[in-house]
Design a protein around this nucleic acid. Structure first.
Lengths: 146, 146
DNA sequence: TAAATATAGTTATCATGATAACTATATTTA
DNA sequence: TAAATATAGTTATCATGATAACTATATTTA
């Protein structure tokens, strides 16, 4: 999350960085602007998911399982290859999704350590319900602070 | 924070959104790409600040006080006008910064509710120390996942 | 093939984000 | 001018991010 509402002026960047170069100041403000815009969008999405007792991470977990082309399941470790999140956070989110009845888990027959994760019917329909407005929020976003 | 490493293909966006429009799919992937890029950058900055026992929020608090043109202090409520963060989170961050000796606080003479926040010498030098590499991280960022 | 190492996943703990509800003071309104 | 409302800031509580250290099983190496 990036909180700064008013970006620093070029003069401020020059002074603070000690580098008096228009391209440098422009690059800095562009990056700050991007972080700000993304933060606003992430927050909108978080609010949306929270109103459905979900979170972005949980939604993305359902999505990466669903979008798998050749299988209808993933190992947790495969999810962590697709989502850039720490193992304990992923572990907890999977536990919550299982408790909610969105994921079914069973031990892998070949590897005693691994857990096979499949979407339940409820998980699939939750994903399907959430998707349209998810895209709507993404695309309606103005790119401006309101 | 946005975790998805591999963006969905155009075909996936079409199917998931039910909207078969190239501009729509492109807008979606652009927004996802932006969130991903910003998340990577925010994470780099968080790591940087953590290595100095700081956080982005605490850094920005010091910065908005320092960059004030006509005064060398701000009320907490003024900081919350400049930073898009909830009051309790701001309150806690200010408390930590005061305990670290980076901020000095005293009651306002006119308004018994308000607290006047000023940078200490240590707060100023911490800000000055952190600024150059902060800009370096912002500008060195490749925009690619590594 | 036994010992060492790697891998899958969990538990404990902490930092930092949020909202709801609060205290204390200032301002507005009837 | 007393009562109602607004404002500044805090406390309690929860969700969700992280790392460190762990268990259990699989794989590699001597």
């Amino acid at each position: 999350m990036f909180f700064l509402k008013q970006l620093p002026t070029k003069a401020m960047v020059d002074k603070y960085s000690g580098i008096y170069c228009p391209e440098y100041a422009e690059k800095v403000t562009n990056q700050l602007k991007m972080m700000r815009e993304a933060s606003i969008l992430v927050r909108q999405l978080d609010t949306y998911f929270a109103s459905h007792n979900m979170s972005q991470l949980k939604f993305l977990i359902l999505m990466v399982i669903d979008r798998e082309l050749d299988r209808d399941w993933l190992y947790a470790v495969e999810i962590s290859e697709r989502l850039d999140v720490s193992k304990p956070v992923l572990s907890r989110a999977i536990k919550t999704l299982t408790e909610k009845g969105y994921l079914s888990t069973h031990k892998d027959s070949k590897d005693g350590r691994a857990v096979v994760l499949t979407l339940t019917q409820s998980g699939k329909s939750t994903l399907t319900t959430l998707l349209p407005d998810y895209f709507k929020i993404l695309t309606n976003h103005s790119g401006e602070e309101q």
